[in-house]
């Protein structure tokens, strides 16, 4: 935490974003949000769609949950309820977004429609809200952290989707097709991401 003390607040925001996206990639170093990756990452297009939705939702819910924590849970001394409270807030928010998207753009609704419910149960989103509590971020820093984590997740699933598009699953042994090969790809990618570790200390 002393890392931030000597940084201007804008600088810290950028740093937090980058570290959340790369050094501390929520998918590749924390292995969160795995189920949607296994399910959706067959192709690049849907991966990017889901990724975009996740970026939006992590950013907003991180901010919301930050406020809920700072102004509701902490003053009331109910911090031990954060897990379930965050889940409820995220679920409600996703529902709300679904409604707005449906009303505003039917095309976007059809493109994202199947992903939005998936997001409610995406543990990366909840993870972001919980991890941000580990460090005393300001609201702006929290938003940067949420956006960064979401971007990192979206980046990872898009790359995995790209790799899986190139992999000819027919040529694989049957037990390896699908989730098997995906987990191996993720494993190799997270080895690569180990290289980032320690570059920025958050």
């Amino acid at each position: 935490m002393e890392t931030f003390a000597d940084l201007t607040s804008l600088g810290s925001v950028v740093l937090i974003f980058i570290s959340a996206a790369f050094t501390d990639n929520i998918l590749l170093t924390r292995f969160l949000g795995m189920c949607s990756v296994l399910g959706v990452s067959k192709k690049v297009d849907p991966s990017m769609g889901l990724g975009a939705a996740v970026i939006f939702v992590t950013t907003c819910t991180a901010g919301l949950n930050h406020l809920v924590h700072a102004y509701l849970l902490a003053p009331l001394g109910l911090e031990y309820l954060r897990l379930i409270t965050f889940i409820v807030v995220i679920a409600a928010f996703v529902q709300f977004v679904e409604m707005v998207v449906e009303r505003v753009s039917e095309g976007l609704y059809n493109a994202l429609g199947i992903f939005l419910p998936l997001i409610t149960v995406n543990c990366a989103i909840l993870g972001v809200s919980l991890f941000m509590l580990g460090t005393p971020y300001s609201l702006l820093q929290t938003l940067a952290y949420g956006a960064g984590a979401g971007t990192g997740w979206a980046f990872a699933i898009t790359v995995i989707g790209g790799i899986r598009e190139k992999v000819n699953e027919q040529a694989l042994p049957r037990g390896l097709a699908g989730p098997g090969i995906t987990l191996i790809i993720i494993g190799i990618m997270s080895l690569a991401f180990v290289g980032f570790s320690g570059m920025i200390r958050v």
Binding site: L76, L81, T85, A92
Partner: peptide
């Protein structure tokens, strides 16, 4: 009791808002 009350109120408010 306060935990239950808090959760109940929170979910009620969110449901009503939705």
């Amino acid at each position: 009791f306060s935990a239950a009350a808090f959760l109940a109120i929170l979910t009620l408010i969110l449901a009503a808002a939705l």
